[in-house]
């Protein structure tokens, strides 16, 4: 069976902008509804991540005993880093998108997107942003609880450029997160089971995106290498800007790098999609 290559990336020929926006607005609403189904699971998980935060806080407070700074940063900045990290984890991480996409391919539910005037990447990205919107709501309460204990160690940046750059780099980091998951999901065109691969990359990602410790504590040469990898830009970068670990001078070139990685991953996703569809046998659906 010959299948088309799906709709073009943005809109359809002859499709008006308002029509296009309305379409994605509906998908966004649909994504919200879907995400709300799992609100309790999400809340439980968000509350459990308070324990992760506690592990980091206890560990670093112990490290700071008899020490005023580690790697040039005080305890406030280090603890703030982990609180901001927890927020960003819920605001931009792709949790299950890779599995959902892989399931669509394996079960054949992806076939309906091939037959409709709907771009699969556009659809997935829209529902991704919708579900992140819901998970941010879920993490507000745990963050509030953590601030009850840690408000003395939490600081908000007062430079306005930090807020602007966090918005820009945070959005691009979310796109990187999504595109990573999307590419991994598309591997299901070739492999039946992607779980092992996903978890393996998760371990590497978690470390190289600064979720275990702030990356600038690495030896200088390793830190330099990590700045060339995409993982740096999918979590550490916005968090480090927000918690004051990067100066404007250091951050600006990073924005260019980050944008380049977004484009590169978008390109890779398009290639995977094109070749993947040739493999696709449209079973089930």
């Amino acid at each position: 069976m010959k299948i088309g290559v799906g709709a073009p990336a943005i809109g359809l020929p002859g499709e008006g902008l308002s029509h296009f926006l309305a379409k994605y607005w509906f998908i966004f609403l649909l994504g919200l509804q879907n995400a709300f189904i799992y609100r309790w699971n999400l809340l439980i998980r968000a509350s459990f991540s308070l324990l992760n935060l506690a592990v980091a806080v206890i560990l670093w407070m112990a490290a700071f005993r008899g020490q005023t700074e580690i790697g040039g940063y005080g305890m406030e900045q280090t603890i703030s880093y982990f609180i901001v990290l927890m927020f960003f984890n819920y605001a931009i991480s792709a949790f299950t998108e890779d599995y959902q996409i892989a399931t669509d391919i394996r079960m054949g539910t992806i076939n309906q997107f091939l037959l409709k005037p709907m771009n699969y990447l556009g659809y997935r990205m829209t529902t991704f942003f919708a579900s992140r919107f819901v998970s941010v709501l879920a993490v507000i309460a745990p963050i509030g609880v953590s601030l009850l204990f840690l408000s003395a160690y939490f600081y908000l940046p007062d430079e306005s450029w930090r807020w602007t750059l966090v918005l820009v780099t945070g959005t691009m980091a979310a796109m990187l997160q999504f595109l990573f998951a999307y590419c991994f999901g598309l591997l299901a065109f070739w492999f039946l089971e992607i779980r092992g691969l996903v978890i393996f990359s998760l371990a590497v990602e978690t470390f190289l995106s600064g979720q275990i410790f702030p990356l600038d504590l690495l030896p200088a040469s390793l830190y330099r290498i990590s700045q060339f990898l995409p993982f740096y830009y999918q979590m550490y970068f916005p968090v480090a800007i927000f918690s004051g670990r990067l100066s404007l001078h250091e951050a600006l070139p990073g924005v260019v790098f980050q944008a380049a990685w977004v484009l590169a991953l978008f390109g890779i996703s398009q290639i995977l999609w094109r070749f993947g569809l040739r493999q696709h046998t449209a079973v089930g659906g």
Partner: peptide, 9 residues
């Protein structure tokens, strides 16, 4: 990494 910056935890 931690012990490259401190000498005890």
């Amino acid at each position: 990494v931690i012990f490259s910056h401190v000498d005890n935890l």
